[in-house]
């Protein structure tokens, strides 16, 4: 059964159909790529999937459950976590606290328990610290746990964003241009990390990317968007060699 099922997803801004009749099916454990030229509507699709925008038409099903029109917060609780094209970290918080914020809905104690510093506070905080450090270790960020997020170098900020998203314990992880602004070495490292996340956390991943090396290297299937419409869908190697796709990217 497919984990994510999207049917006829459509949204218009004024007269512009930013996403038009978008369909996708992603199976559990898949590494799926969403590509297309600038302005094709890829990030809009992410914003629709995470409830930032409400679709005009269409249905989004996660694990069989209809999540269309839910609030961003509830969609995250249902199991979709994301990163952003322009990094959105909690800059004035430490690296560790960024991940602990991601654990917000996994570990509970009430605000009163927190203010009165009851034993449950110390117990749960300790568990949160341990879990957060484990996640940071996966991304090789455990050495910088005390740093302010704003002081991390660019590549590590991207990684921290993924760690924070994973902390919410999602079923589906959306990565919006994870390799943007990275050099080839960093991109190579990132590819390993993404594969590792998929295998280690049994994660299903949908990613937007312009770096074709990364896309062809790790994505099993692709959907190509152009002017808000699906241009092509299928196996990575087939899609990338399709003349229509090449034209869309490189022009006539």
């Amino acid at each position: 059964m497919s984990l994510l099922e999207v049917k006829n997803l459509t949204i218009s801004f004024g007269g512009l159909r930013a996403v038009d009749d978008f369909n996708i099916e992603i199976k559990e454990g898949q590494l799926y790529g969403l590509i297309g030229p600038n302005g094709a509507g890829k990030t809009t699709v992410f914003n629709l999937l995470t409830g930032v925008y409400k679709p005009n038409e269409g249905i989004i099903r996660l694990d069989g459950r209809d999540i269309t029109g839910l609030k961003t917060m509830d969609i995250n609780k249902a199991g979709i976590a994301r990163t952003f094209q322009n990094i959105r970290l909690f800059k004035a918080l430490s690296v560790l606290d960024n991940v602990k914020a991601g654990l917000h809905n996994t570990y509970h104690y009430s605000t009163i328990e927190g203010i009165l510093r009851l034993p449950s506070y110390f117990k749960v905080e300790k568990e949160m610290n341990e879990r957060a450090m484990d996640l940071l270790k996966v991304f090789d960020l455990d050495g910088e746990a005390d740093y302010l997020a704003a002081n991390l170098p660019y590549g590590k900020q991207r990684k921290l964003e993924i760690a924070r998203a994973l902390a919410t314990n999602p079923k589906l992880l959306l990565l919006d241009e994870p390799a943007a602004g990275m050099n080839p070495n960093e991109t190579g490292e990132l590819m390993d990390t993404i594969r590792f996340v998929r295998d280690e956390f049994k994660m299903t991943i949908l990613l937007i990317e312009h770096d074709m090396k990364l896309v062809s290297g790790i994505c099993e299937e692709l959907t190509v968007l152009n002017f808000g419409r699906v241009l092509m869908q299928g196996k990575t190697s087939t899609v990338l060699n399709d003349p229509q796709v090449i034209t869309a990217y490189l022009g006539e």
Binding site: M73, A101, G102, H104, A165
Partner: peptide, 23 residues
């Protein structure tokens, strides 16, 4: 505390705070 982190995460980036399920 947990609530304080949630409050500060809203201050630092509301959209990201929403995306990780904070009310």
């Amino acid at each position: 505390s947990r609530a304080g982190r949630a409050i500060m995460s809203i201050r630092d980036n509301r959209i990201a705070a929403e995306s990780i399920g904070i009310n």
